[in-house]
Amino acid sequence: MASVVSRRSQRLREAVLGYLLILPALAVFGVFVFYPFARNFKLALYQTPPFPGLPSHYVGLHQVGQVLTSSNFLQSLLTTIFFVVLVVPAGLLLGLFLAVAAHRHLRGIAVYRIIFSSTVVSSVAVAALVFGTLMNPVVGFLPWLGINPHPPILENTTWALPAIAVMAVWQFLGLSFIIMSAGLSSLPEEVLEAARVDGASSWTTFWRVTVPLLSPTLFFGVVVATIYAFQTFGQIDILIGSQNAAYEHVNVLIYNVYTTLQINGDPGRAAVLSIALFLLTLTLTLVQMRFLERRVSYAS
């Protein structure tokens, strides 16, 4: 009898301890993740009054429809998709290329690896300032190479977004390289060896053996790169800003959320936009999982 009671009390104590240990993290998540996430949906239903100080009033789905059909949102959505298309394939292919090149045990390879992964530590502010100078119409490198459009690149409605994309690709390259390298070094060496013994050229081996085996890594890379592209914010804020002539053409969704909230002071609209961005990210991730996983061949 006593042992049953003591075992039960021991169980209870274990459970209480378990809850106590997860409590700190859970409290932070509750206040700063789950609550704001839920409240965002409510905010989307309330219209911000035209003058500060007035109470916001309930308009239901009216505001959601209004925002989602506005030309501001549609242009922002197109800009975001265009940006993703510019950044994701380029960032991943360059990372893969460098990882394949560095996947040999050669003298000095460690130095190359550090260089290739180095951009992972650059912050958005650092990347923005580095490239902002390169793209400056007066200072610089590009005018010397004969690249000096009018208006200057970062105020140019055509070139501002591709310029931000170049910056994003450069900054993402380090992470891309690291992910691809880890994938390469986890491949079963015997399979690659067998392909070589069978007389396959390195070109054939790469496309027929390495890439299929690497597909889980590539898949992971696509998801990470897409999310990275969706969240590119700082470069746009620092180099272009909302006063710029090219602003409309670089106004990706996340920047739109920020300007709507902080500059236009409209939390209702900002909430709708942020939900749209969230749903877009979520859908893309799920679609990618579906479509890519079907083609992915897992090594083990």
Binding site: F29, P36, N40, L43, Q231, V257, Y258, A271, F278, T281
Partner: peptide
């Protein structure tokens, strides 16, 4: 929590 991007929580936070 990994699926909820930060910008969705920005306004309320």
């Amino acid at each position: 929590t990994l699926m909820i991007p930060f910008e969705v929580t920005l306004i309320t936070n």
